[in-house]
Write a protein that binds this DNA or RNA. Structure first.
Length: 851
RNA sequence: GCCCGAGUGGCGGAAUUGGUAGACGCAACGGACUUAAAAUCCGUUGAGGUUUUGCCUCGUGCCGGUUCGAUUCCGGCCUCGGGCACCA
């Protein structure tokens, strides 16, 4: 037990360092209790160890930590783990820059990060941390890859892929943001390469359908991002026969089968493999080569912008629109993309703006087939893409466009030339990377046997240490003979290893499973533990992962569910995206130089002030502007709490020895409520007692239900302000020490998840033993929290004219009496006819008069 | 272009179910304490008006509607942020 000494001043630097050690010694960081308690899995997205944690990290982890700490105190068995997403480009680029080996650099960064996390009082059990670049971990990442491979969910295929010239590697679609590399921001080009993909596109519909399981726990805006990314659209797949070549037909996807009669030409993407096959005449071949050259010189961004001029050329061939037997010319054009749909389109210039511009430029006929009013409009200056009535459409003329889509589709199905079709924008997930710092893809290429998966018993395929890891277009492992050359596990003959490594998003798609049994060396995870802990109850992390990690992880879990390994379909029941921290109106970032490092703050004011301010600065899910004076305010509040509590402790100690008859040395009392009932409390004391219970109610609800940490803190501030009022207005000899004790203890408990250090220090200073972080979270008594008096607002015609404090639940008739006798109200109602009197119990009265 | 958010004092924000707009904090100003400063404490702080210790009018992006009553609900617009995007 520590005794009160000279402690007039709050010195965070002294107490925080001391308590960090105490907590580590006493294992206060682990919030696991007992499997008989209800479980709760709180998880924050684990960090890339690219250096010291930044403010965004701090916000993320502090939010998760407060939730975990409160729930643990409410009797939950809490899993609140930490680890490091250690493979990948950021770590590797940083290593190259520093001239260090990625492993050393990563481990050094992890060390700094771990220290910082401990320093800000996070409740992580570091004995259970995981590092994805450890062979113990990536062995199982490789194991999952093999599982996907065996299920037919991983495949090597040739496709146009995104190539980042600066990172010297391919990227997944999700890692290309507006045509630029997610990591280095340089322009991304296209290459046709043979790469490994995970077949996420087959799960598009399931990813959409299962969103209904997330409706409660995920913000709508995140689901919208995913919905947009998956990009479902309904329509028809229609076959167009190539004229003059028996048996060749080209399918196209359209969302508007109702416009089929308006097709006047047909376009293939310039890269479409059919282009070279179908062009016969040498003249056309030359012309096409010319146009293709121009188009391939256009970057993806250029081609993706609507402003760029549409160019193309005729191929000399025709296709037949089976619906009306019309023969239409086949063109190539820059605005048709190989990746989307079938890489070919039917062009309807009257009803598609792009087709309209193209047809106008090249003099292709325009036939109107949808009319808003059923009339034919000879000339238009733009395409009409709205709904209307089908015209010039044979037997379908007169049908509404909505109905026409269905009717035409049925007709196509009957005739066997088309079918209802759902198209998705979601592409397969490209996971190979031509970089060193990642988990090697466990595949062997044998001259005899072809692609051979590495047998499970040979895992992990170790990433060799001694490699020239600088990116050079091909994986650095390709130049590492000791790694590449191997023998075929099937025939024993000479073979070569796959030298690409896996996208780090593969590592992070299952880490939350590993946390359930982090030391298991027999399997990726222990099913019993996963069945107990998973799914994650509360996930916290940046929204920038909405269409990356959060989609990949959902997909991964669905595949594992299908394989029978898991019993749940969604990994994260609730997801809370924290807002970005800004400085000077811009997102804090190293490259812009507008950084406030959390360490600057905790070195100056202490971790508690950092935590308090981060939570107080605004709603946790909205972006906030960093303010230095805001931190000072937080620090001022903590000083205020410190002085208040120290004074209260002294008061309690002094009066204990003078046998004040109102003093009750027992704490916690068996039945606090009865105790106070039998005591005569002054008006202010009653108010304080009530405020305490209201505060407990509000803080608990704001943290656990509303995620409004800022209002939870302002409620505690109000309580502190009121206790100060008591301390200053009432002489010590007249103070009720039982109440002071009750207020002081509970104030500290309410603060303890938010500002763990100061709460613990004051708790100990007051003579308590153990740790405040093991004390049960207080309940509130609704009866005590209930106000006795309530301000009733008197309105006339909806305008506030007077108000009065009346006992709660005063009957309507009595309130009305007060209202009608109010001079102020009379002033507005005298001589006027009262039409209506509205009485809202405990709120207001509104007198409606004729004016 | 389509989809999702948001818009409240000098600033961050609060108002949880349609019922007192501006809680809590920051900044600013005035005062107390001090030789002085820091720290601390007290007071003022949406705008305008006024017969000034009280009261009145206006006020939650803009216009309109529903309602006894709207920051909150509905319709239309504006601005900002975000997602998708020559996506067929």
């Amino acid at each position: 037990m520590e005794k009160i000494s000279v402690n007039k001043f709050y010195k965070p630097e002294e107490i925080e360092e001391k308590l960090t050690k105490k907590w580590e010694r006493e294992k206060i960081y682990s919030l696991k209790s007992d499997k008989s308690d209800p479980k709760y899995y709180v998880l924050e997205m684990f960090p890339y160890p690219s250096g010291e944690p930044h403010m965004g990290h701090a916000r993320n982890y502090i939010i998760g930590d407060v939730i975990a700490k409160v729930l643990s105190r409410k009797g939950y068995n809490i899993l609140h783990p930490i680890g490091f997403d250690a493979f990948g480009l950021p770590a590797e680029n940083a290593a190259i820059k520093n001239g260090m080996h990625p492993r050393e650099s990563t481990m050094a960064n992890i060390d700094r990060m771990r220290k910082a996390l401990k320093r800000i009082g996070m409740s992580y059990d570091f004995d259970d941390e995981i590092i994805t670049s450890d062979p113990d971990y990536y062995k199982w990442t490789q194991w999952f890859f093999l599982m996907f491979y065996k299920m037919g969910m991983a495949e090597k295929k040739e496709a146009p892929v995104n190539w980042c010239n600066s990172c010297q590697t391919v990227l997944a679609n999700e890692q290309v943001i507006s045509g630029r590399c997610e990591r280095c921001d340089s322009l991304v080009g296209k290459r046709i390469l043979s790469q490994w993909f995970l077949k996420i596109s087959g799960y598009a519909q399931r990813l959409l359908d299962d969103m209904k399981l997330l409706k409660e726990g995920w913000p709508e805006r995140v689901l919208t991002i995913q919905r947009n990314w998956i990009g479902r659209s309904e329509g028809a797949m229609v076959d167009f026969k190539l004229s003059g070549s028996e048996g060749i037909s080209i399918p196209v996807f359209t969302t508007r089968p109702d416009t089929l009669f308006g097709v006047t030409f047909f376009i293939l993407a310039p890269e479409h493999p059919l282009v070279d096959k179908i062009v016969e005449s040498e003249d056309y071949k030359k012309e096409i080569e010319k146009v293709k050259n121009i188009i391939s010189g256009q970057s993806d961004i250029e081609r993706g912008s609507a402003e760029i001029e549409k160019i193309g050329c005729f191929t000399g061939r025709y296709v037949i629109n089976t619906l009306n037997g019309r023969e239409v010319p086949v063109w190539i054009a820059n605005y048709v993309l190989l990746e989307y749909g079938t890489g070919a389109i039917m062009a309807v210039p009257a009803h598609d703006q792009r087709d309209f511009e193209f047809a106008s430029k090249y003099g292709i006929p325009i036939i109107e087939v949808i009319s808003p009013d059923g009339e034919s409009h000879r000339k238009r200056s733009a395409a009409y893409s709205g709904e209307g009535i089908m015209i010039n459409s044979g037997k379908f003329s007169g049908t509404s466009s909505e109905k026409g889509r269905k009717d035409v589709t049925s007709y196509l199905e009957e005739k066997g030339i088309g079918k209802f079709y759902v198209n998705y924008k979601l592409r397969d997930w490209l996971i190979s990377r031509q970089r060193y710092w990642g988990a090697p893809i466990p595949i062997i290429y044998c001259e005899e046997c072809g692609i051979v998966p590495v047998p499970e018993k040979d895992l992990p395929v170790l990433l060799p240490y001694d490699v020239d890891f600088k990116p050079k277009g091909l994986s650095p492992l390709f130049y590492c003979d000791g790694f590449v050359n191997t023998t075929c596990p099937q025939c024993g003959g000479k073979a070569k290893r796959e030298t690409d490594t896996m996208d780090t998003f593969v590592c992070s798609s299952w880490y939350f499973l590993r946390y359930c049994s982090p030391h298991n060396d027999k399997a990726a995870f222990d099913s019993k533990e996963v069945d107990y802990w998973m799914p994650v109850d509360q996930y916290v992390g940046g929204i920038e992962h909405a269409s990356m990690h959060l989609i990949y992880a959902r997909f991964f879990i669905k595949v594992l569910y299908d394989s029978g390994l898991l019993k749940f379909k969604e990994p994260f029941i609730k997801y809370f995206p924290h807002g970005i921290v800004y400085l000077g109106g811009q997102k804090m970032s190293k490259s812009k130089g507008n950084i406030v490092n959390p360490s600057e703050i905790y070195n100056k004011y202490g971790a508690d002030a950092l935590r308090l301010y981060i939570l107080f600065m605004g709603p946790a899910d909205s972006p906030v502007e960093w303010s230095d004076s805001g931190v000072e305010g937080a620090n001022r509040f903590l000083n205020r709490v410190w002085r208040l509590v120290i004074k209260n402790i002294e008061l309690i100690d002094n009066i204990k020895s003078t046998h004040n008859e109102r003093n009750d040395p027992e704490y916690p009392g068996k039945d606090i409520k009865d105790k106070f009932k039998n005591m005569k409390l002054s008006r202010l004391e009653m108010e304080l007692y009530r405020k305490l219970h209201q505060t407990i109610k509000k803080v608990t609800n704001d943290i656990l239900v509303r995620f409004n940490f800022n209002t939870a803190i302002s409620a505690v501030m109000e309580l502190v302000n009121l206790i100060y009022k008591y301390q200053e207005e009432v002489p010590d000899s007249k103070k009720n020490t039982s109440l002071v004790k009750e207020l002081t203890w509970k104030l500290l408990i309410l603060l303890s998840p938010i500002t763990p250090f100061i709460a613990e220090e004051l708790w100990l200073k007051a003579g308590n033993t153990g740790s405040i972080h093991r004390v049960r979270w207080p309940d509130y008594d609704p009866e005590i929290a209930r106000e006795e008096l309530v301000t009733i607002v008197f309105q006339v015609n909806g305008k506030l004219r007077d108000r009065m404090d009346l006992p709660v639940d005063t009957p309507a008739e009595e309130i009305k009496k007060h209202v009608l006798s109010s001079e102020k109200v009379k002033h507005y109602t005298d001589g006027k006819e009262i039409i209506k009197e509205i009485v809202v119990p405990n709120k207001l009265v509104n007198i409606v008069v004729k004016s």
